[in-house]
Design a protein around this nucleic acid. Structure first.
Length: 888
RNA sequence: GCUCGGUUAACUCAGUGGUAGAGUGCAUCCUUCACACGGAUGAAGUCACUGGUUCAAGUCCAGUACCGAGCACCA
């Protein structure tokens, strides 16, 4: 039998068990298994990513679900993998090139992609190793990558499918353009952030009325070279007479028409808008309505493109803003500037303001929108918490076509080829769709044309999410799908509800004709104590690996799950992780204590070996153990992970250690049947508890399971099925539990009495008890053990010396004779206070029962309960008063 | 602007109609032969505010305030 160290050291234990699980193929999912299937696909982290607290939370949840499902006898597939993360990954390699003074164009597309693959092979997938450190039980044999050959083929098939269906088209549209990444972004990849900026009040001269000016407020003077109109609200009386006339754009000088458009808010600024159709979405639409020219005055990288204004040409857009304002000022056309807070769209990846830009892009009309809405509305897919349903519905109702093309190199290249001689013409064509296939100048397919020399492939790649949305089924081969698709649960952050979850539902319905998962659990967002979202850029996120090193993966997991509510967010506090570690240590030491009493039966305790005679404390803790099993089942069914964690914590620490273990310590010295019964009880509690805790703290539970000898050679705790029979099946525990509770409660009151009299908690005292029932005397030794009493005497006729401290407890009146320390006044005041407390409760109870409405209209059992309560109070007060009277 | 959350002990959070809870922190005691990553005891909440429904409201309804998120936007 192994000796256990005094404190649990997670480091080596965790690494050793992970290796053993792998070696034992414990995570392997067998498609041919006869057990019912359970599956989760991991939300694939970026291949370039490193583990952050959000990952820890999300993957702990998934691991818990998977490990629990295995315990329930299911064949479990947790399918892991990573995402190629177009922009993020490409950026890393571009940065490396830049350090060498090169750009990707210098090395060329082919070579560049080689470099990215090379980078991915050497530096990618760090996060996979980190997930292993966390204890994740993924089937690593099935690890997938969104750019695996098979997976890529699926992506291409998807594109071709929608193109031929007519739902993918190409066109020149206003898109979100990232001037750093030099690519279009979808609306979902843009974050609107409030910005402190300036509102510039400019004056444009009226062409038809020289000398008079139109005042215009703008936040973007640097785009005024692209102004091709000025707009006012048609109902704005101040400006109605000017509609149809012209204003003079200061530089480059031009006369631009004044138009009337409903979009203009007369309340904002001066009520006049300069219309720059090439650089603002709203302006673009106004321009369309009034036939205004589109004048692009910015380069793709955000520098000004306006040779007519040499002092601005080539400047960065923000620098140009100040130069343009200065220029207006010099011309006497800048009236004033005001501070102004507005919201600016930022590129989620690059962190810079996006630039609305007209460019040629590929779009997808979302498929299966109606059905995807219904499956969630009808509960075929459950959202937890359910309020995310509404957010989902809102998005589905206002859904816009998805810009799926990206001007990147790293990603799935669009499977479209143009016939060489027509390429230039086709690539500039206003629109392109399935109809163009007919002419034979276009090839759209998963295979390149047979004569590739005559064709040119589209330069763009697809949005990363255009591959991720196929994840639940594209990662599976046919036999795997047959067993594990649709998947059971999906756990993810609400921040990718639109990016990923909604789109997966649509793709699942379109291609598998089935929902991709039955439950979606939206976990909390991890914030710091100030409430800020944890992020690398804020530097407020602890490195989970440091936490694992300091507290163990198990400590991190339990600590986090205890505070992770099902609500909006969780405030991370390292203190909580420390508690997780402390819990592991508590568990460790309780098991260590068990080992000190002798070896456990190899293979663990058998429920059938339940001793005929069980002490009341044993019955009590076993009843709690049985109740725990039921409560956990309920909580798992509701995905209430923090509840589960709290129940596990409370059962073990409060009930098992603080109450039960403290009450039975004498048994080990006595030996005999009592000792055997207690050891059996401990073993049942420990083995079942280790199993119940296992999904949350897999390593330490597995270690202790083996050390205590609960498993046979070669058996893993993680593979053991949950017992179905309650330990106390067929036994009426009520009376025993009442007695155990009475002893616990009394012990607590007596310790309180000692404390009130400033007796050290380990001070040996003598107790005299007027027992409340004949059974009490049998519990004297336990009572003494729990209260630190040298002796407990029973004397129904005891007449205490005046002023003897006394407490009314569930085992009877308890006296604490304190020779030489008697203080009648103190005791009178103490009893008086207690009486006052009880009287207050009694008054409340009497008032309720005195209310005719209550007695008539409340549920009978509630009234009955209240009557019982009142009776208790009355009895108690009578006894207390008698004790008080005894003081003389 | 619209929508959705939140507001309970010093902190982090449970608690959806019937005697206000946990962990941490704090105070006091205990280095008792599992554990000081521990044990014991205790103090500490007009459950944000205002109304309403109900015999009964932290819990249900309406409104207000503040905090947060999502969506749409005013240049």
């Amino acid at each position: 039998m192994a000796e256990l160290s005094k404190a649990y050291e997670p480091g080596e234990v965790e690494a050793a068990w992970y290796a053993r699980w792998l070696e034992g193929k414990c995570f392997h999912a067998e498609a041919g298994s006869g057990k019912p299937g359970y599956s989760i696909v991991i939300p694939p982290p970026n291949v370039t990513g490193i583990l952050h607290m959000g990952h820890v939370l999300n993957n702990t949840i998934q691991d818990i679900l998977c490990r629990r499902a295995r315990q329930e006898g299911k064949e479990v597939l947790w399918l892991p993998g990573t995402d190629h993360a177009g922009i993020a990954t490409q950026t890393k390699v571009e940065r490396k090139l830049r350090d060498e003074g090169k750009t990707k164009r210098d090395v060329g597309r082919e070579k560049f992609l080689e470099m990215v693959w090379d980078w991915k092979d050497h530096h990618g997938g760090i996060i996979i190793d980190q997930l292993k450190k966390l204890g994740c039980s993924c089937d690593w044999e099935r690890e997938r990558f969104t750019m695996d050959e098979e997976y890529s083929r699926e992506v291409q098939r998807t594109f071709v499918h929608f193109f031929k269906q007519g739902n993918i088209y190409r066109g020149k549209r206003m898109v979100n353009w990232c001037p750093v990444s030099l690519t279009a972004l979808s609306d979902e990849e843009v974050d609107m952030k409030p910005q402190q900026s300036k509102l510039y009040y400019m004056k444009y001269e009226l062409v038809e009325e020289p000398g008079t000016h139109l005042r215009i407020a703008t936040t973007r003077p640097e785009t005024l070279m692209g102004d091709t109109g000025v707009a006012v609200n048609p109902r704005d009386e101040r400006y109605g007479h000017l509609v149809g006339k012209h204003a003079r754009r200061p530089f480059p000088a031009a006369d631009i028409p004044i138009v009337a458009d409903e979009h203009i808010d007369p309340e904002f600024g001066t009520g006049v808008l300069k219309v720059t159709p090439a650089h603002d979405k709203a302006d673009f639409e106004i321009g369309q309505r009034h036939g205004l020219e589109i004048l692009d005055v910015l380069h793709p990288d955000g520098r000004v493109n306006c040779p007519e204004c040499p002092d601005l040409d080539g400047l960065d857009r923000f620098e140009a803003r100040y130069v343009a304002a200065k220029k207006l000022e010099d011309m006497g056309l800048l009236e004033k500037t005001e501070d102004h807070e507005n919201k600016v769209g930022f590129s989620e990846r690059a962190g810079v303001p996006i630039e609305p830009r007209i460019s040629m892009q590929w779009f997808l009309r979302y498929p299966q929108v109606g059905r995807a809405t219904r499956v969630v509305a009808d509960g075929e897919i459950e959202f937890r918490p359910p309020r995310w349903k509404k957010t989902y519905m809102n998005w589905m109702e206002n859904i816009q076509d998805w810009c799926i093309s990206r001007q990147l190199w790293w990603g799935h290249r669009i499977p479209v080829w143009y016939r060489k001689e027509k390429a230039v013409e086709l690539q500039e064509a206003e629109s392109l769709d399935a109809a163009d296939l007919e002419r034979g100048d276009l090839h759209v397919g998963t295979e390149p044309p047979g004569d590739p020399g005559n064709w040119v492939q589209d330069e763009d790649v697809l949005d990363t999410w255009f591959s991720s949305w196929l994840w639940p089924y594209a990662t599976m081969d046919e036999p795997t799908r047959a067993k594990f698709y649709p998947t059971s649960d999906l756990s993810t952050g609400p921040d990718i509800l639109f990016f990923w979850v909604a789109r997966m539902i649509m793709a699942g319905l379109e291609f598998m004709d089935e929902v991709p998962f039955k439950n979606v659990y939206f976990h909390s967002i991890v914030r710091d104590l100030k409430g800020d979202k944890m992020s690398k850029s804020l530097g407020n996120s602890p490195d989970p690996l440091d936490l694992i090193a300091n507290y163990g993966a198990d400590g991190l997991r339990l600590g986090l799950m205890r505070i992770a509510p099902t609500g909006m967010d969780v405030r991370f506090d390292e203190k909580q992780i420390e508690e997780g570690r402390n819990f592991a240590n508590k568990l460790w030491n309780a098991c260590r204590y068990r080992l000190m009493q002798g070896e456990a039966a190899m293979g663990g305790p058998a429920a059938a070996d339940r001793p005929a005679e069980l002490p009341v404390y044993a019955i009590d803790i076993l009843a709690k153990l049985d109740a725990l099993g039921e409560q956990l089942e309920t909580a798992y069914a509701a995905y209430k992970f923090n509840d589960i964690a709290a129940q596990l914590y409370e059962f073990f620490w409060s009930n098992f250690c603080d109450l039960y273990l403290e009450a039975v310590k004498n048994d080990f010295r006595e030996g005999g049947e009592r000792k055997a019964a207690t050891l059996w009880t401990m073993d049942v509690c420990l083995s079942r508890f280790l199993q119940a805790l296992h999904p949350f703290m897999p390593h330490v539970t597995e270690e202790l399971w083996r050390t205590l000898g609960f498993g046979r050679e070669g058996e893993f705790l993680m593979q053991a099925e949950l017992p179905r029979e309650p330990v106390l099946a067929g036994l009426d525990a009520a009376e025993a539990r009442e007695r155990a509770a009475a002893v616990y409660e009394s012990a607590s009151r007596i310790r309180n009495l000692k404390a009130e009299y400033n007796l050290a908690s380990n001070k040996k005292v003598r107790l005299v008890v007027k027992p409340a029932g004949g059974w009490v005397e049998a519990e004297a030794a336990t009572l003494a053990l729990l209260t630190g009493a040298a002796a407990v005497d029973f004397d129904a006729a005891y007449e205490p010396p005046k002023g003897t401290p006394a407490a009314l407890t569930a085992v009877g009146e308890v006296y604490l004779p304190l020779e030489g320390l008697i203080d009648v006044a103190a005791e009178r005041s103490r009893l008086g206070k207690e009486i006052a407390k009880v009287e207050k409760e009694m008054a409340k109870s009497e008032a309720k029962l005195g209310n005719a409405n209550f007695v008539e209209r409340a549920k009978p059992e509630v009234v009955e309960q209240e009557r019982g309560r009142l009776k208790d109070w009355q009895e108690k007060i009578a006894q207390l008063q008698e004790m008080l009277a005894g003081l003389g």
